[in-house]
């Protein structure tokens, strides 16, 4: 084995030593039945983010996995990794919301568990935050994006939905669904306190709310590689997306976005407690 590089030593330090300062960045990975993919993704993210040299934390927000995802992550026992466990599979939006509520960083990165957008893209997107944007979102549709493995069917559906979202909702974002988004923490907390959807359309809802509240959103082209083995049913997902578009509009008309989610919602997990639906710092 080679001598340790600076990046590797930074990783080892991050793994073994609890942060002595609040994190600058919180990386949130929602995970549902990701036992096959989660460890390589954690390895890649932990190496890259540790090498950046700023304090950061990793939050794996499980979404009621029925496989060994929770056990695999818990067994890592990384000093700065928080595992949030959910009893039921409520949806990606629910998992991300719990992650955002638990996040302590000034910057929040939400990234998919399949590393379809390589973590190296973070550096470029984070730089855009410095220009004043509250949200910087990875885009597979912006000029300069490099997309591999996306089927023609998904491309056509994405394009159609984009036109609908742009002209029907005023959300001028070419790709609402890319699972790689960076948010300023204050904006993330506010947006995820207001948003209601538990499923995969939460991205659209958050962007709709960002538009409504006047947050500046910047779209940055990313490299994106389709994760093989995806079982996404494009037709089914598209229909759900359309239904959620209507729900978002109805929620807004009824004033549900004028107030935060009720206190009866599951709140920020308390790391000291080891129970389902609560965070467990491992």
């Amino acid at each position: 084995m080679s001598e340790s590089s600076t990046a590797y030593r930074a990783y080892r330090s991050w793994v073994t030593e609890p942060l002595s300062a609040p994190p600058v960045v919180s990386v949130i990975i929602p995970a549902y039945n990701e036992e096959w993919r989660i460890l390589p993704t954690i390895g890649a993210i932990a190496t890259h983010m540790s090498a950046r040299g700023e304090p950061w934390e990793l939050i794996i927000s499980d979404d009621g996995s029925r496989d060994t995802t929770v056990e695999l992550v818990r067994d890592l026992r990384f000093a700065n990794l928080t595992l949030l466990v959910a009893e039921e599979n409520a949806g990606k939006g629910s998992a991300v919301r719990r992650g955002v509520r638990a996040a302590r960083g000034d910057i929040v990165l939400v990234a998919d568990a399949d590393q379809s957008t390589p973590i190296e893209q973070y550096d470029r997107l984070a730089a855009s935050l410095e220009t004043g944007s509250a949200l910087v979102i990875g885009s597979r549709a912006a000029d300069g994006a490099a997309v591999r493995g996306k089927s023609i069917g998904r491309r056509i559906v994405s394009r159609g939905l984009h036109l609908l979202v742009a002209y029907g909702f005023g959300v001028r974002v070419a790709d609402t669904q890319c699972g790689f988004k960076i948010l300023r923490a204050d904006a993330a907390k506010r947006l995820f306190d207001l948003q209601q959807l538990d499923g995969f359309s939460f991205d659209l809802e958050v962007l709709y709310l960002a538009h409504k509240l006047g947050y500046e959103v910047t779209e940055v082209p990313v490299e994106w590689i389709d994760a093989p083995g995806s079982t996404v049913d494009v037709a089914k997902v598209s229909m759900q997306f359309l239904r959620d578009l209507v729900r978002i509009r109805m929620y807004d008309l009824r004033g549900r976005y004028a107030r935060s989610r009720p206190e009866s919602e599951p709140r920020v997990p308390t790391p000291a407690h080891d129970a389902v639906d609560e965070g467990t710092r491992v």
Binding site: M1, S2, Y8, Y11, L39, G43, A44, T47, H48, L76
Partner: peptide
């Protein structure tokens, strides 16, 4: 031979 840092870490944690 000479695994990059992320590959080395991935091999370790798996």
């Amino acid at each position: 031979a000479d695994p990059s840092d992320p590959v080395r870490v991935i091999l370790e944690i798996t």
